[in-house]
């Protein structure tokens, strides 16, 4: 783990809460992620950007335990979680949202969040009730709490993803294009919620194509292309990196 601190610059006084080293993820002969080191400091907000197919979501899935890495290790708060499944990682404090929302369609919004709080959060019934009401309130969903999740529109489905993840009491929240498909006004609502999470000391890893939305929250950017990290650092520096410009705009642009 200590080789990481040599790499990570500004984060030296904050211990890393999530630490992925030399991650490779292959699907058959195709390697979606090829040797990525990725750290999240406690309370840090990291943005991941890159063109489609860069391996961003695959990396997120490896962090969340949806996929197990083909090679490399994942540490959470110092312990090796490389072999833990998604449910166990969630119970430890790594929550996620999905790019395409996956509500429990035949359950109410409240029940959706209740499952997350009682299982992922490990709460007793009464504690779970309080937690659910708090996360629904934070996400502005109290008024639709009794609706069947299948009746929700896209913005509410995205909010539900967020509320459900929050109800598990995460230390790290992994967001997969939560702003995708939303209007600017809608995305702004989500940003306002996510900013409040920062105040609660939840570390955030956020994949997002809409840069101006992401930059309102991210302190550090990790730019990926073709399964690798091609640049990282504070947003202005990372985005100015020649490799990033080339990945986004193609070569020949000066």
């Amino acid at each position: 783990m200590w080789e990481v601190s040599a790499r990570s610059h500004e984060m030296s006084e904050r211990p890393n809460v999530l630490n992925a080293a030399a991650i490779v993820k292959r699907f058959g002969s195709f390697a979606a992620v090829t040797g990525v080191d990725f750290q999240v400091g406690a309370h840090e907000a990291v943005g991941i950007v890159g063109p489609n197919g860069a391996g961003k979501t695959t990396l997120l899935n490896v962090l969340a335990g949806t996929y197990l890495a083909s090679a490399g290790t994942v540490h959470f708060e110092g312990s090796d979680i490389s072999h833990l499944d998604a449910a166990s990682r969630c119970r430890l404090g790594i929550a996620r949202t999905h790019q395409v929302p996956r509500p429990f369609a035949n359950m109410t919004v409240f029940e959706n969040v209740f499952v997350a709080s009682s299982m992922g959060g490990g709460h007793s019934r009464e504690r779970a009730y309080e937690g659910c009401i708090a996360s629904l309130q934070l996400c502005g969903m109290l008024d639709v709490a009794n609706r069947q999740a299948e009746t929700l529109g896209l913005l509410d489905r995205k909010r539900l993803e967020l509320a459900r993840a929050l109800a598990t009491d995460p230390k790290v929240l992994l967001l997969d294009e939560i702003g995708g498909g939303l209007t600017d006004a809608e995305a702004a609502e989500l940003v306002a919620i996510i900013k409040q999470l920062r105040a609660r000391n939840i570390a955030i890893v956020w994949i997002e194509h809409i840069l101006h939305v992401l930059l309102q929250v991210a302190e550090r950017l990790v730019c990926m292309d073709a399964g690798r990290v091609i640049a990282e650092g504070v947003p202005e520096v990372a985005l100015a990196h020649p490799a990033v410009i080339e990945a986004y705009l193609g070569s020949g642009v000066t």
Binding site: F104, S118, M119, G120, A149
Partner: peptide, 24 residues
């Protein structure tokens, strides 16, 4: 019970259930 809600979550979306901590 709380497990009952988890059972229904698995019915509706197994992967999402796992991602909120349900031991599927």
């Amino acid at each position: 019970s709380r497990t009952g809600a988890a059972i229904q979550a698995i019915r509706d979306n197994e992967d999402a259930a796992a991602s909120v901590g349900v031991r599927v």
